[in-house]
Amino acid sequence: MLALDLGTSTGWAIRGHDGLITSGTVSFRPSRFDGGGMRYLRFQHWLEQLADDSGGLAAIYFEEVRRHIGTDAAHLYGGFLATLTAWCEREGVAYQGVPVGTIKRFATGKGNAGKDAVLAAMRQRGFQPADDNEADAIALLLWAMETRGGVL
């Protein structure tokens, strides 16, 4: 089971077949020589590699963002979401978006909690996320495990 906080700095958390949780962030920031679609190709390649390295993915949960601060952020999110859902459809992997407020409420008790509150909540649970993207992914994975039993 994989949880993603989609973006240029994508937070991820995965629960392996052995039950262990691993997490991190990966950057899809383009270099100055990249064309517009290279970040999405790198994202797709990363997904394929993660699926191979983990022995396959049964389900992917992603943070479903409904409002963006700017147009560029909305376009980037849309590109990552389209790449993710197309990959899942092609590979036969179940996927589900989870609203941001649901994840924050689960992690902190408040649906409008700030980034620092989610980070602190994940640290209180014994995780050491490097940033808010990783913390959001961990919170989403824990939500999926505790409220859905890891099943879509």
Rank of each mutant, 00 (worst) to 15 (best):
R123V: 01
L140N: 01
Q124F: 07
C88I: 04
Y61W: 15
Y95T: 02
R125T: 08
A117K: 00
R66K: 11
G114F: 08
A13I: 06
G149D: 03
L141K: 04
K110G: 05
A3Q: 12
G111Q: 09
M145G: 10
H75E: 12
P99K: 07
W46S: 04
L119Q: 06
R32H: 02
D52S: 11
M1A: 08
F33K: 08
I69C: 05
G79A: 11
L6F: 09
A139K: 07
A82N: 09
F106A: 04
G24K: 01
G126V: 04
N133P: 03
R67Y: 13
S23Q: 01
F62R: 01
R29H: 14
D132P: 01
I21H: 03
G19R: 14
G19T: 06
L4P: 15
G149H: 07
L57C: 12
V26R: 14
L20M: 13
G111S: 11
F80L: 04
L41Y: 09
V118T: 08
S9K: 15
A82V: 07
L141M: 03
Q96A: 13
L119E: 06
S27H: 10
T25Q: 07
A107Y: 04
A86V: 12
P99C: 05
G19Y: 05
D53E: 15
M1Y: 00
I138G: 09
A130N: 02
A130S: 11
G78C: 13
E64A: 13
R66V: 08
M38Y: 00
F106W: 11
L140I: 00
E48L: 10
I21Y: 02
G111W: 10
R105L: 11
T71K: 10
R32L: 05
D5L: 11
L57F: 14
G16R: 14
A74K: 13
P129Y: 04
F33Q: 12
Q44T: 12
A117F: 04
L141I: 07
L20P: 00
F43A: 03
F80W: 01
N112K: 12
T71G: 06
L20S: 15
G92E: 06
M38D: 05
Q128H: 06
A73R: 07
G101H: 10
L41N: 04
L47R: 05
